[in-house]
Design a protein around this nucleic acid. Sequence first.
DNA 1: AATGCACTCACGCAAGTACT
DNA 2: AGTACTTGCGTGAGTGCATT
Length: 466
Amino acid sequence: MAAHPVFSFDDVDNDNTQMLLEHCHLQPAEPGTSNGTPMSVDFNALLGPLIPSPNPAPVSANMFSWIEATGPNENDYNYVCIVAGCGQRFARFEGLDCHLTDHYKNEYAGRLPEAGTHFTCPVTRCNLPLKESEHVYRHLRSHVFHASKQKTGLDVYREMFPDLRSCGFERSPLLQLEGEPWICGWKNCEKPFDDLTQFVDHVTSHMDDVSSADLDELGTYHCEWVSGIERTRCPQSFLNRRCLRVHLTCHSGDRACACPFCGALFTNRTKFKDHVMRRLPEGEATLSCALCQKKFATSRLLKLHCRKHVKSVKCAYCDVVMDCASAVAKHMKLVHAKIKNEKCDECGMTFGIKADLQKHVAAMHEIEPKFRCRSCPKKFRWEKQLREHEKTHLENYIANRYLCHKCPMKYKSGSSLSRHFTSVHNLPLPNGFNRFQYKKCHDGFYRLQTARCISKEVIEAAKLHV
DNA sequence: AATGCACTCACGCAAGTACT
DNA sequence: AGTACTTGCGTGAGTGCATT
């Protein structure tokens, strides 16, 4: 039986790390077993054959791809118009390009939205509000740009997994380009564009004017992009032209490719390949994290994951140790400084994070619970509540999954088990933790998590302060 | 092109609280 | 002790930039 390769923390790039398994007075969560047999996956059986499309099928509400594969070969694909109710197919990009222009001419050109309303992007599941017909035009051009990048993404997919039919991610946020003209910010240019593709090409063309004569006394090329009302110049400078060329993409909005399934855009192919490899079917991910047993398809993704386990920055005001300075800065802002700038317009309650405010508004100020159980009439305000409730309809449902390691008690929630630890066993928090944390073990039960990986620098610094 | 690293943002788990 | 509801905040995914 072949075993999964087990990643050791010695493999983490930073040599100054070590794994600490802090038993304290507690037992650690179930030690993970990382051996097993990698499954061989038959993608065809799992995902079904590729669907040929001689007879165009209607565009489904869930579809968000301008491109579809129609066979296994390089040229077996169609562009698909995903404007709601359309679904027309094109063998060439130019066909889709002209077709979307026709949509604009027939439905928006020269018209005004009804008084007090606005236009809405007709693309399925986009629905971005747009003020004027010109905004609709420019916004649709950004969709054309997106379509071309999804074709590049499809090509990358086919090199790696010719039969894969999903990336495993939900649809990504779309291009939120609200239809204002694109203005070139390169020094003394300010040329406006109505088409994103042309704008990107134009910005890139400024690189043709950059030569060694532009090097400063330190031998660097400066980015000449100016922006804002005060027309401030971008502070970035680079040792070679190629780096400046890559940097310009963050001003132009250029992207190397887009996922043909979820639509997410990526700055380069490497980032896109990471995206592809993250959600491969179970069995393809054969590299195991030694600490949490989570499995990954590539050593790069495993290393990215493991770096999160290595806590290397300590909070100056408490024992919390985190993986990077920005995480500690955020912790200090929220926990110690208690800075709360996000205010609810309805009740005045304040939050440290915008997302928390949004959750609060959705939960407290939306009247009707919107999450409905598919098996009974119950409704819930929180998606998590619905998910927990729906589990109770399963045949093998076990209510109490949180296990106490000191006695046979079991609880339905981590909250109840935490209270049990403090009230019955008088347990303090494990060293280095600011709350009890639980880990789901292989048997599906949750046990106390006490393992932590802390950098040598932090450990040495702690010794000096003792 | 690939890799490393620090950063942001959204998501989701656990805590806190109130009630039974 | 069980449960529901709401908040706090740590983590994962993705990004830009620098380096190899």
